[in-house]
C-alpha cells in the first residue's frame, strides 16, 4: 500500500473524485423516496469515498480526516437517530415510529398529519440514521482490517 501514495495520477484523480462521490452519497440518501436508493446504498457510497482516501493516502491520513473514535461514535449515533425518531413519536403520543406524530399534532386531532408531510420528514431522518451507521461501520471495518496488518 505504501507505493500507492507515490502514484501521482492516482492521488490527483482521487482528490478530484472524492468530493463527487460524497455528494453522490448524500444525494442517494436524501432522494431515496423519489428514486432508487436510500440509506444503505448512500452510506456505502459515502464510505467508499473515505476508504478510497485511506487506500491512496494511507491510514494515518484517513485517521486524521475521520478519527476512529468519532467514526465509531457516529456509528452508534446513526442507530440512535433512527430509534430516537421512533421514541420521539412514542413520546409525542403515537405508536413507536408513527411518523404522523413527528411534528406534534394540533390540539384535539385524532390522527394528526394525514397529508403525509410528517411522514416524509420521518423517512428522511431515519434514512440519514441508516446512512450514517452504514458509512461509519464500513470505515470501521476497513480500519480494523488494516490496523491488524500493521500491528
Amino acid at each position: 500500500m505504501k507505493n500507492m501514495e507515490d502514484q501521482v495520477v492516482l492521488r490527483v484523480f482521487s482528490k478530484i473524485m472524492i468530493p463527487f462521490i460524497i455528494i453522490f452519497g448524500f444525494y442517494v440518501i436524501t432522494h431515496g423516496e423519489l428514486g432508487p436508493g436510500g440509506g444503505f446504498q448512500g452510506g456505502v457510497i459515502l464510505a467508499s469515498a473515505f476508504i478510497l482516501y485511506g487506500l491512496v493516502f494511507g491510514k494515518d491520513q484517513l485517521a486524521e480526516a475521520a478519527p476512529p473514535r468519532v467514526v465509531e461514535g457516529l456509528a452508534a449515533f446513526g442507530v440512535l437517530l433512527y430509534s430516537g425518531v421512533g421514541a420521539w413519536c412514542l413520546l409525542a403520543g403515537g405508536n413507536f415510529l408513527d411518523y404522523s406524530y413527528i411534528i406534534p399534532p394540533a390540539e384535539g386531532a385524532v390522527i394528526p398529519h394525514l397529508d403525509g408531510g410528517a411522514e416524509i420528514w420521518g423517512m428522511i431522518l431515519v434514512e440519514y440514521g441508516v446512512g450514517i451507521t452504514v458509512c461509519t461501520v464500513m470505515i470501521t471495518v476497513y480500519n480494523m482490517i488494516t490496523e491488524e496488518a500493521e500491528a
Binding site: G32, E33, G35, P36, S100, I111, L114, D115, G116, E119
Partner: peptide
C-alpha cells in the same frame, strides 16, 4: 384516511 404518498 391517510394520504401520505411517497414516489418510491
Amino acid at each position: 384516511e391517510f394520504h401520505g404518498h411517497v414516489y418510491n
